[in-house]
């Protein structure tokens, strides 16, 4: 397999490795399984409706690890609703992901959505 410099960088030095370190409530989203090619845990600490900290843990191929690292890094500081706005196709293009591996980023999308759903369930009174 041939991996882009961006994939290499985030695979070797993943950003936002979990768990979150700061204080406050944390929402969690888990998705996938080893049999599906990836298992991803996203954790987010939200302060004042914003993603103060977003971390990940992932079992998967280099594209999965790099994709989680990039996505988590970019979500920091965004409104909590941004967890639902992840675009797998855009990240796939950025990572030069082979088309047959796109399903791995859909698992990341599910983990982010599950994280938002967890936040909505556990913190219903908190504004988005």
């Amino acid at each position: 397999m041939c991996y882009s410099p961006l994939v290499r960088e985030h695979f070797d030095r993943p950003r936002q490795l979990g768990p979150p370190r700061g204080p406050g409530p944390v929402a969690r989203g888990l998705s996938g399984s080893p049999a599906e090619g990836a298992r991803i845990l996203i954790e987010a600490r939200v302060v004042g409706g914003r993603l103060e900290e977003v971390t990940f843990r992932a079992l998967g191929c280099p594209w999965v690890i790099a994709g989680c690292s990039l996505a988590a890094e970019r979500l920091v500081g965004a409104p909590v609703a941004a967890l639902a706005g992840f675009d797998p196709a855009a990240l796939a293009a950025e990572l030069d992901l082979p088309v047959e591996r796109l399903g791995r980023l859909l698992i990341l999308q599910d983990a982010l959505r599950n994280c938002l759903a967890d936040w909505d369930t556990t913190q219903p009174a908190t504004p988005r």
Binding site: Y3, P34, L59, C61, P62
Partner: peptide
């Protein structure tokens, strides 16, 4: 156990 083969190969 606990790692993915392609990532292990790449690491």
């Amino acid at each position: 156990a606990g790692v993915e083969g392609e990532s292990l190969l790449f690491a």
